[in-house]
């Protein structure tokens, strides 16, 4: 049984260190917040201007002035702070944010990432993704190993327009955990009941076992 979305989120949560600032992207990365071990102090950054983001509000307590970068209503934890967008990207650019977790459409063996544009389809924009990947100290990508047509998303080179270059250090997919270094995907861990053969067959980029 490969990992489902929650499995991927739980596995990534193990990578989060105590006493760090973390930015979570939309989708699977958002789920990671639910599985950070008890007793660990982690402060979530939302690039629209929050440090110390809390869970969704209880019904009836939603505040139109308090949303996350996915435009969802959220809450603030004790000890949180609010700032403007320039400062938010300032702290990202200055590498004060320790870890960024985001989704991707493609990742290459040299750490390039594509996650914002599919030519010929409606383009919505890169939002804060290009800023985050260009500056983050540590970036983990959460994604499915293959697209819906069954094509590998771990590639020698990205075919889609890039979001950033040489920036991704780790990828967690439904099939396993991979470190990217020296121009290759290094297998760190297989998801439960996933065979090495399956990973080899589904990884187009250079794979080191």
């Amino acid at each position: 049984m490969a990992w489902d979305k929650i499995g991927i989120a739980k596995r990534i949560a193990q990578e989060v260190q105590d006493g760090t600032y973390v930015n979570l992207g939309i989708g699977i990365p958002t789920l990671v917040a639910n599985y950070i071990p008890e007793g660990m102090e982690v402060e979530l950054q939302s690039e629209n201007g929050i440090l110390g983001m809390g869970p969704f509000p209880f019904e009836g307590e939603e505040d139109a002035d308090l949303i996350n970068a996915g435009k969802q209503t959220v809450t603030l934890r004790d000890g949180s702070s609010i700032f403007d967008s320039a400062m938010s990207f300032g702290m990202i650019r200055a590498q004060k944010v320790d870890l960024t977790i985001l989704g991707a459409m493609e990742v290459s063996e040299n750490g390039d990432i594509a996650n914002w544009k599919v030519p010929g389809k409606m383009v919505k924009g890169m939002g804060g993704a290009m800023d985050l990947v260009a500056s983050a100290k540590n970036i983990i990508v959460a994604m499915q190993h293959c697209d819906k047509a069954g094509n590998s998303k771990l590639l020698p080179q990205c075919s889609l327009p890039l979001t950033g270059i040489h920036c991704i250090k780790k990828v967690v997919t439904d099939l396993g955990v991979f470190d990217i270094r020296d121009g290759a995907f290094h297998l760190v861990e297989l998801a439960p009941d996933v065979t090495l053969e399956e990973v080899v067959a589904k990884t187009e980029g250079k794979l080191v076992v």
């Binding site: 869970p55 969704f56 509000p57 209880f58 019904e59 307590e61 939603e62 139109a64 949303i67 996915g70 435009k71 969802q72 209503t73 959220v74």
Partner: peptide, 8 residues
């Protein structure tokens, strides 16, 4: 509110 998200 664009995305009203709440918890139980």
């Amino acid at each position: 509110i664009e995305q009203r998200t709440v918890r139980q």
